[in-house]
């Protein structure tokens, strides 16, 4: 893993330290969890606004990624896996986007997470943008799937910050269900 960046004097601290992970998925449902775990790479860590923009300036935007690629933004210490201690009782909101929207939506979502706009305490674990051939998918992971007040608040904030058409379908899936059917979406 990359070294953890120490905040620098004069920088604007974020509420949490975050890691950006990258993975490429083999197409198909039955992805071996071990292989998937091994495909995850931390590509950046940051804890201030300035470090975040510095990282953003060299990272590829979601629309520039090819194949079945995933970019993950997670709090430091939480691995973007269903089985991670912070995720195992959790779930995620899934938003399917037509091609062409992912980069803008992903940046809007990241800004809302880093700026603590969701107002759900410690509940947000991270978010993923998944590049697929026909569509792109954004998901926001939270800790407690059965906390309906929190999940509804996350959905409403997500709708607002992504600025999506009103008829966009959003679906919540628990990580337990994902583990059971070996499928993320």
């Amino acid at each position: 893993r990359t070294r953890s960046l120490e905040p620098i004097d004069g920088h604007h601290r974020l509420q949490y330290t975050y890691c950006i992970w990258y993975s490429r998925r083999t197409p198909g449902k039955l992805t071996n969890p071990l292989t998937y775990d091994q495909s995850l790479r931390i590509i950046a860590t940051f804890s201030t606004v300035e470090q975040f923009w510095s990282v953003q300036s060299y990272l590829l935007r979601p629309s520039e990624l090819s194949g079945h690629s995933d970019l993950h933004l997670f709090k430091d210490g939480i691995k973007p896996l269903w089985e991670d201690d912070a995720n195992k009782e959790g779930g995620k909101w899934i938003v399917r986007l037509r091609k062409g929207l992912a980069s803008r939506c992903w940046e809007n979502l990241i800004l809302a997470i880093l700026g603590e706009q969701f107002m759900v305490g410690e509940e947000i674990c991270g978010a993923v943008v998944s590049i697929r051939s026909q569509e792109d998918i954004i998901s926001v992971w939270n800790k407690t799937a059965n906390d309906s007040i929190t999940t509804i608040r996350i959905r409403d904030t997500l709708k607002r910050v992504l600025n999506l058409p009103l008829n966009t379908i959003m679906e919540y899936k628990t990580h337990n269900d994902s583990l059971r059917d070996h499928s993320s979406f």
């Binding site: 604007h12 601290r13 606004v49 300035e50 953003q56 300036s57 700026g115 706009q117």
Partner: peptide, 21 residues
């Protein structure tokens, strides 16, 4: 405790700060 909150326009403004580039 107190949470560190930033709105979108502030974060976007910070994109162009010399320290971030």
């Amino acid at each position: 405790g107190t949470r560190i909150i930033y709105d979108r326009s502030f974060l976007l403004k910070m994109r162009n700060s010399p320290i971030a580039s």
